[in-house]
Design a protein around this nucleic acid. Structure first.
Lengths: 150, 150
DNA sequence: ACCAATTAAATGTATATACATTTAATACTT
DNA sequence: AAGTATTAAATGTATATACATTTAATTGGT
């Protein structure tokens, strides 16, 4: 559906203003989709993001800072997110040997299993996008988005 | 900067998966830009969004529900946002005559003045986008985003 | 080696969000 | 017309976010 209908606004000052609104709107839309999708598994999109990052390193551990650098939302509080995941037993934490300020975080078997169980579900959003765009179009869109943030 | 560098992830499962992450990432990026931009004026991006909607109707009033329908973030609590703006004297509220469940909201002169004062600043984000894309590219990007949500 | 500067992580706190529930007014149905 | 259903807005509440501050460990300069 066109943004015009979604937010009931007939026209925009420019294609650029519409674009800024469209990106924020679509981001919110994807995000609230994710919240609903992940809820049955008991984690938030941000927690999922952390788990995915840790899975990428598995079975190695990485620092809290390192997680923060890789997150989609740079403002999120990695320390607290890690704490939540720890309570659920999805990750484990250990003070780093050679720098005792750092805390090494690694995904647990339980965490890996959860991601596995979520795989089909988490692909749904990608599939939704896929059905409406060709690979070339997706690629072009990615390039545009990368350029916008320059 | 490429998303790969931004979130320090070397590769993605597909162009579509990257796209989902890219939209959320870029949305967050725009949003935290807005927070910083609007902070000196004492309002949040969401409050700004409500003011803009009301300005579009000025000097007419619209219901809280009507505001909610037009917002970028459909999950936001329009009632509470309106309350915040009311405390600041940027809007006024009045129970609707023919349906006393509804509350008619209109922007005040103070609100209009604030938007006026913010005009230059709020254009900065659009300009930033403008400098990196042509109008045709922005249009194409808008079309892609609209299609994604179908 | 000592002390200021820096860094990693955690915490404090005000505000915002997600979502369910409540309250009050209006609309339906028979 | 009475009683149920629906709708508009507000509120309750748990969790999340933005951002500043704190605590503890390490680095670097002299």
């Amino acid at each position: 559906m066109q943004l015009e209908e979604e937010i009931k606004q007939k026209k925009f000052k420019s294609e650029f203003q519409k674009l800024a609104l469209n990106i924020i709107f679509t981001g919110n839309w994807l995000n609230s989709n994710s919240i609903k999708t992940f809820k049955p598994f008991g984690i938030s999109p941000q927690q999922y993001n952390v788990l995915r990052i840790l899975k990428g390193q598995h079975p190695e551990a990485i620092s809290v800072n390192c997680i923060a650098e890789r997150m989609l939302d740079k403002n999120s509080n990695a320390s607290r997110l890690v704490d939540k995941l720890n309570t659920k037993g999805l990750i484990k934490r250990e003070t780093c040997g050679h720098d005792r300020r750092q805390v090494d975080i690694a995904i647990t078997e339980k965490g890996v299993k959860l991601l596995k169980a979520m795989e089909t579900t988490s692909n749904e959003i990608d599939l939704k996008i896929k059905s409406n765009l060709t690979t070339d179009e997706a690629k072009q869109l990615n390039d545009f988005l990368d350029r916008i943030r320059d």
